[in-house]
Computed example of a mutant assay.
Amino acid sequence: MPNRKQSSPEIVSNEEWEVALNQLLIKEKEVTRARDALNAERRKLPMVKVKSDYEFQGENGNVSFLELFGGRRQLIVYHFMYAPHWKAGCDGCSWVADAMTHPAHLHARDTSLVMVSRAPIDKLTQYKERMGWTIPWFSSFESEFNYDFGVTTAAGEKHGASVFLRDGNDIYRTYFTGSRGVEYLGSLWTYLDLTPFGRQEKWEKSPKGWPQTEPYVWNRRHDEYDL
């Protein structure tokens, strides 16, 4: 609990709180409608045909790009940062993976979700078991996939999410997001956004005296917190 001598939200009656809450909910609804409009615009984006054939290594052997779809029309690929020489996967990407939905809900809408990384499949399998994940994870170690889609560059590994549409045996890339765009894939951030302290990072506008740290220094893999 913050020190009451430090700046904090005003304490009011329940009636006053409901008035303030309803005013905020009006603004939240505006943001929701704006996001609906943005989603509609995203659905109208042009798409580009994937011309190369890629092969990936999975837990049960090699698979083609087409096989990643699992027979479905749509595919979401999360580009998980895990370079071949790393001892563990990216902690931020691990947050995203922790919050991934049960695939049955996506399958009901003709959509598959997989993760792809450059690390060899044995490393991915070991880390997946450690984290307790069930999302399919494939290695692009022996292909140019990461380079062609801009998530491995001369500067190093990048995270992101690519969306693909299948028309028969033809594959098209329809969307990509990286950086903070992936936060909406990992609800842990959006849960924290609901709380009074927020993410507790210095870039946020919070009352004076609220607990805050630099970003990216506090988050851990879920089995590494000292709680």
Results as ranks from 00 to 15, higher is better:
residue 159 H to M: 14
residue 87 K to A: 11
residue 181 G to C: 03
residue 200 Q to H: 05
residue 79 H to T: 12
residue 64 S to H: 09
residue 83 A to M: 13
residue 186 G to Q: 04
residue 1 M to G: 13
residue 210 W to Y: 15
residue 196 P to D: 03
residue 223 D to H: 12
residue 108 A to N: 07
residue 92 G to A: 05
residue 150 G to N: 06
residue 144 E to Y: 01
residue 131 M to W: 04
residue 68 L to V: 00
residue 78 Y to Q: 02
residue 179 S to I: 13
residue 108 A to K: 07
residue 36 D to K: 13
residue 160 G to Q: 05
residue 41 E to W: 12
residue 72 R to M: 11
residue 161 A to D: 00
residue 7 S to V: 14
residue 132 G to N: 06
residue 127 Y to I: 04
residue 40 A to I: 04
residue 191 Y to C: 06
residue 156 G to E: 06
residue 30 E to H: 09
residue 98 D to N: 08
residue 151 V to D: 01
residue 219 N to Q: 11
residue 20 A to P: 01
residue 99 A to V: 00
residue 161 A to E: 02
residue 161 A to S: 08
residue 88 A to V: 05
residue 227 L to P: 00
residue 43 R to N: 09
residue 124 L to S: 00
residue 120 P to L: 13
residue 111 T to Y: 01
residue 203 W to M: 12
residue 162 S to C: 04
residue 172 Y to A: 03
residue 50 V to A: 09
residue 56 F to R: 00
residue 121 I to M: 12
residue 173 R to S: 15
residue 150 G to I: 06
residue 127 Y to A: 07
residue 44 K to M: 05
residue 24 L to V: 13
residue 222 H to Y: 15
residue 141 F to C: 07
residue 143 S to P: 03
residue 187 S to G: 08
residue 162 S to V: 02
residue 57 Q to M: 11
residue 121 I to A: 09
residue 185 L to S: 00
residue 34 A to C: 07
residue 97 A to M: 08
residue 140 S to L: 03
residue 52 S to E: 10
residue 82 Y to W: 11
residue 203 W to E: 09
residue 173 R to L: 12
residue 148 D to H: 10
residue 157 E to L: 02
residue 216 Y to V: 08
residue 50 V to S: 09
residue 35 R to L: 14
residue 127 Y to R: 06
residue 217 V to F: 04
residue 63 V to R: 05
residue 118 R to D: 13
residue 33 R to P: 00
residue 68 L to M: 00
residue 129 E to F: 02
residue 8 S to Y: 10
residue 199 R to F: 09
residue 206 S to E: 05
residue 91 D to A: 15
residue 162 S to D: 06
residue 48 V to Y: 11
residue 52 S to L: 12
residue 178 G to T: 07
residue 169 N to C: 07
residue 142 E to L: 06
residue 206 S to A: 12
residue 43 R to S: 09
residue 51 K to T: 15
residue 136 P to T: 00
residue 110 D to C: 09
residue 185 L to I: 05
residue 105 H to Q: 10
residue 15 E to F: 07
residue 41 E to Q: 15
residue 79 H to Q: 13
residue 96 V to Y: 01
residue 122 D to H: 14
residue 10 E to M: 10
residue 221 R to K: 14
residue 147 Y to I: 09
residue 118 R to Y: 07
residue 94 S to Q: 08
residue 196 P to V: 03
residue 222 H to W: 12
residue 16 E to H: 02
residue 53 D to T: 15
residue 140 S to C: 15
residue 52 S to I: 08
residue 116 V to E: 00
residue 30 E to M: 12
residue 144 E to M: 03
residue 210 W to I: 08
residue 86 W to Q: 12
residue 135 I to K: 01
residue 37 A to D: 09
residue 71 G to C: 01
residue 31 V to L: 11
residue 89 G to L: 02
residue 8 S to F: 12
residue 80 F to N: 03
residue 117 S to G: 02
residue 202 K to W: 13
residue 136 P to V: 00
residue 173 R to N: 12
residue 59 E to D: 07
residue 140 S to W: 02
residue 12 V to T: 07
residue 82 Y to N: 06
residue 35 R to N: 14
residue 212 Q to S: 10
residue 222 H to P: 15
residue 82 Y to S: 06
residue 178 G to H: 04
residue 20 A to Q: 10
residue 92 G to M: 04
residue 30 E to K: 15
